[in-house]
């Protein structure tokens, strides 16, 4: 077999591999662990008391807050990201950080005569982008529904922070040499593992947080929408966003008006990068041979002038 025909074959094989569609992904059909737990957040009920923030701080042993949890001036403070459009975690609202796994923000919505409060924290995706982006497997989605994190293997690359569609994982910059991502873990270690609700849910006095099996929370959400006409937008945020999340939301106002990104894909983020990632091994194995071949073809005239003529005669 001639070198040229081998190269031709390799090239066409490479092209074929890149053209052939990869099989339908399993991620698109995986709709979460059957008994996974979740939380339904009802924005019509939240009064912004910040009890959830206080309970989270205590449960997770987080540092002393800058302002006490009964200080409501935090709702008026403008954080970083003010210049960004609303719905992308910006809008001048507070964000979760290394000192707070959950924050409540206030939204004034035109047409509603009282402020709307919205709690944010990790949404514990069915198919977490942080998990799939992590090359040392520091993240785990537990059958109970939590997305937990193992600091022992984390190398601090912060890819998860980029991958998360909700901008939730935060980096503990105060310990950059012992990398540590800080995010809500659904109180897995202390509560969820033992069948107990997270601390924030237990603390909520208004029932803005309902803990239960994710599937049953969807039933509860639909029932609330049905039995209270006009009180809710007919949509449960998180049922499908990014492939579905364990934490879901009901709102009296359009979700984009209260800080939600309503342009998120309905499929897991993984599905959007899988084809690219599938091409990576092919690139690593075929391209070196391919380009080495091109190089040899391009340069062999210089070194092997007489071979060229004999080969052409043969073919």
């Amino acid at each position: 077999m001639e070198r040229r025909s081998f190269l031709k074959g390799a090239l066409s094989a490479g092209l074929a591999a890149s053209v052939v569609k990869t099989e339908k992904s399993e991620a698109a059909t995986f709709d979460g662990y059957p008994d996974g737990m979740g939380v339904l957040v009802d924005l019509t009920r939240c009064v912004g008391c910040r009890s959830c923030e206080a309970a989270c701080n205590k449960e997770q042993g987080l540092p002393e807050p800058e302002k006490p949890f009964d200080d409501m001036s935090v709702f008026d403070a403008h954080g970083h990201g003010e210049e960004h459009a609303e719905g992308h975690g910006g809008g001048g609202k507070r964000r979760t950080d290394e000192k707070a796994y959950t924050v409540v923000n206030k939204y004034d919505v035109p047409g509603i005569d009282h402020p709307i409060f919205r709690k944010m924290q990790c949404n514990h995706c069915n198919e977490p982008a942080c998990l799939t982006s992590c090359f040392v497997n520091a993240y785990t989605k537990t059958p109970e529904g939590a997305v937990i994190y193992n600091p022992d293997v984390c190398v601090g690359c912060r890819t998860c922070m980029v991958a998360c569609p909700f901008y939730v994982p935060t980096f503990k910059y105060s310990s950059a040499f012992k990398p540590r991502i800080m995010k809500c873990i659904f109180c897995y270690d202390t509560r969820l593992k033992f069948g107990r609700p997270p601390a924030c849910v237990e603390a909520c006095p208004m029932g803005a947080l309902t803990f239960g099996k994710r599937k049953e929370l969807l039933d509860i959400g639909r029932q609330r929408i049905r039995e209270n006409p006009g009180s809710y937008v007919n949509y449960i945020y998180g049922e499908h966003e990014a492939g579905g999340t364990a934490w879901m939301y009901l709102s009296p106002a359009p979700f984009e008006k209260v800080g939600f990104d309503t342009h998120l894909p309905k499929e897991p983020i993984l599905n959007y990068v899988k084809e690219f990632l599938g091409a990576v091994p092919m690139v690593l194995t075929i391209w070196p041979a391919l380009f080495a071949g091109f190089h040899l073809l391009a340069t062999r005239k210089d070194g092997h002038g007489h071979d060229e003529t004999s080969e052409e005669e043969n073919s």
Binding site: R196, P197, R224
Partner: peptide, 26 residues
């Protein structure tokens, strides 16, 4: 929301009608 209460919620009539019963404080 304790495990026992969540299990209880799976039973008989509660499973169909009283699925959204708030806790005492709420």
């Amino acid at each position: 929301f304790e495990a026992a209460a969540v299990q209880e919620q799976q039973k008989d009539v509660d499973r169909y009608y009283h699925i959204d019963k708030p806790g005492l404080k709420v």
